[in-house]
Every structure is written in C-alpha cells, then in structure tokens.
C-alpha cells in the first residue's frame, strides 16, 4: 500500500499525550472520587499506547519488539488491580463519610 504519510510512532505519541493530559486534567478537576479514578485509567491507557507504538514493527524498523506489548499487558493487569483497590477505597470512603466528594476528604489535614 502506498501511503501519503505513513502512520508513525509520533502519531501514536500524540494520541497518547492527549489521553495522558486529559486524564491528568480529569484527576485534577473532578470532585467525584470515581471521576478521579477514571482519570487515572486514561493516564495509564495513554502510557500503554506509547508502549504499543514503540513495540510495533509496523511503525518503526527498530522496534522494542515484544517488550512493548508485554509491558502494556502488565500495565493493563496492574490497572485492573489498581481499579479494584481504588474502588474499594472509594466505597469505604463513601460509607464512612456519606459522600463521594474528594474535596471533603480532609480528615488527615494537619
């Protein structure tokens, strides 16, 4: 296939960067604990996209090879674990404070 401008690692990096930044902003601005959690997921996914891009043979002649995909796999599994724990924390927080607003989680303030 003849391409005008073949998709390169840089293009994937752009998408990854957008996801990362959006996730970061989400973490910063959302008041709902679960919204913050969703931001974390986006950030992780942005990072994953970079690993995949660097590991892809289609995008780069000298790629990371399998390593990129394997790391992405580990990230996905760890993200699942992180989500389980974070959700448990959020639910406990909700139980103890009857709110899900992270701005009100100020018990540990010095």
């Amino acid at each position: 296939m003849i391409g005008i401008s073949p998709v390169s690692v840089s293009h994937y990096l752009v998408v990854g960067a957008v996801l990362f930044v959006v996730g970061a902003i989400c973490m910063a601005t959302k008041r709902n604990a679960l919204g913050v959690l969703m931001g974390v997921e986006l950030v992780l996914n942005g990072a994953n996209l970079n690993f995949i891009a660097f590991g892809s043979k289609y995008l780069r002649a000298e790629s990371l090879g399998l390593d990129g995909q394997l790391i992405a796999l580990f990230v996905i599994v760890l993200a699942a674990a992180e989500a389980a724990v974070a959700l448990a924390i959020a639910l406990n927080f909700y139980n103890n404070h009857a709110t899900i607003d992270v701005d009100q989680a100020s018990e540990l303030k010095g």
Binding site: V7, Y12, L34, L37, M38, E41, N45, N48, L49, I52, A53, G55, S56, K57, Y58, L59, G68, Q69, A72, L73, I76, V77, A79, A80, A83, A84, L87, A90, L91
Partner: peptide, 28 residues
C-alpha cells in the same frame, strides 16, 4: 492497538479493561 499489530494486547484491553475494570467502575 489492533492497528499497531498488537492484537493480543488489544483483545486484552477489551476484555480486562473494558469488560472487567469498567464494569467494576460502573458498579461503583
């Protein structure tokens, strides 16, 4: 992911992330 040739990771993403983690999240 599929486009980058990482089909296993892509399916994994669908299964664990979308099918598992997010269901958990929606539950929450």
């Amino acid at each position: 992911f599929f486009l980058a040739g990482a089909e296993f990771v892509g399916a994994m993403q669908l299964m664990i992330y979308v099918g598992g983690t997010l269901v958990l999240l929606i539950f929450g």
